[in-house]
């Protein structure tokens, strides 16, 4: 996935040797009571530090104006001002930003899942000449820092032939700049997803597809009806990562969008802060809108995430 927040993925994207999978948790090893209390104390204090900024975010977004700037800071608002959200959404065209981000995230998820599972399956299960070379090439793209490609990527997007007023040779117009194509296509598939799904497909038993082949099923049908449904745990993990990458993407949308109605929510937030830096309540309301969907998605999908990491040997 080539989009900016795929650096999150990039932080995770590195071909690693596959460790044996162990899905069971270690048997309970309870220490003495004092140690247990100490551990919980430590973890609770840590968790409070981790969550404190989010509590601040929600609290500030609901505060009445006179409680925004107080000494000491106010944590619990006197009354809950929900209309701040209405104001924030109206002030910066945030409905549109959120819609754009949702679109980017959904397209990023669908395209990554579709293309990465097709390619990952082929790399794992179909025999074709040059398979190994191609796969190594795909993996090698993980090592290229995003910054190396981003400038030429911008130029290539600008010179896509026959788009945005361009002629056949890509001149004369703006190409895919400031379009949904430019926003989504470069990140449509990522090496990370291909790698992950290949690892998954490799460990599925061979008998299934052999039986289907004897029955005369075509390769596409074998993939769609038998293999893809089996890969759902890995697909779920990739979906979470892709949705997150699309929703949180920043640098690429910042570069590729030039008009207000094309901005994504992360880009819109940074513009908002420049215009309304003193409106802490509206700023935090917008931040809530920018973070809550992704946190909700994680809360729903976290069990898949942990399992998917164990499955694919991502841990190293």
């Amino acid at each position: 996935m080539a989009l900016a927040d795929q650096r999150l993925l990039r932080q995770q994207t590195y071909p690693v040797p596959i460790a044996p999978v162990r899905d069971r948790r270690r048997a309970p090893r309870r220490g003495p009571l004092a140690a247990s209390v100490l551990r919980h104390l430590f973890l609770l204090v840590g968790a409070a530090i981790m969550l404190m900024p989010f509590v601040w975010m929600i609290s500030t977004s609901l505060k009445p104006a006179d409680q925004l700037f107080t000494v000491p800071p106010t944590w619990i608002p006197r009354e809950l001002r929900w209309d701040t959200y209405v104001k924030a959404m109206g002030a910066g065209n945030f409905g549109r930003y959120a819609l754009n981000s949702l679109l980017l995230a959904v397209i990023n998820t669908i395209s990554n899942v579709a293309l990465a599972s097709l390619a990952g399956y082929a790399f794992a299960r179909l025999a074709f000449p040059g398979r190994r070379v191609l796969f190594v090439l795909v993996l090698a793209t993980l090592m290229v820092p995003y910054q190396v490609t981003i400038i030429p990527l911008f130029i290539i997007i600008r010179h896509i032939p026959l788009a945005g007023g361009n002629d056949l040779f890509g001149g004369g117009g703006i190409g895919w700049i400031n379009s949904y194509w430019g926003l989504t296509v470069p990140g449509a598939v990522g090496a990370f997803g291909i790698f992950m799904l290949r690892q998954f497909f490799q460990q599925l038993p061979k008998d299934l597809e052999d039986a289907a082949r004897i029955d005369g099923a075509g390769e596409l049908r074998i993939f769609l009806q038998i293999m893809f449904p089996l890969a759902l745990p890995a697909v779920a993990t990739l979906s979470i990562f892709s949705f997150q990458a699309g929703w949180n993407a920043f640098l690429w949308p910042l570069l590729i969008t030039t008009t207000d109605e094309m901005r994504t929510i992360q880009v819109g937030l940074t513009v908002f802060v420049q215009q309304y830096s003193t409106q802490w309540d509206q700023l935090m309301a917008a931040t809530v809108v920018a973070t809550l969907p992704i946190i909700a998605m994680f809360a729903v999908g976290q069990r898949y995430l942990v399992r998917g990491i164990a499955f694919t040997g991502l841990k190293g």
């Binding site: 992360q266 920018a290 992704i294």
Partner: peptide, 12 residues
Amino acid sequence: AYYVPVVSSMVA
């Protein structure tokens, strides 16, 4: 709790 910052966007 410890993972929520990871999923949130750096901008936010």
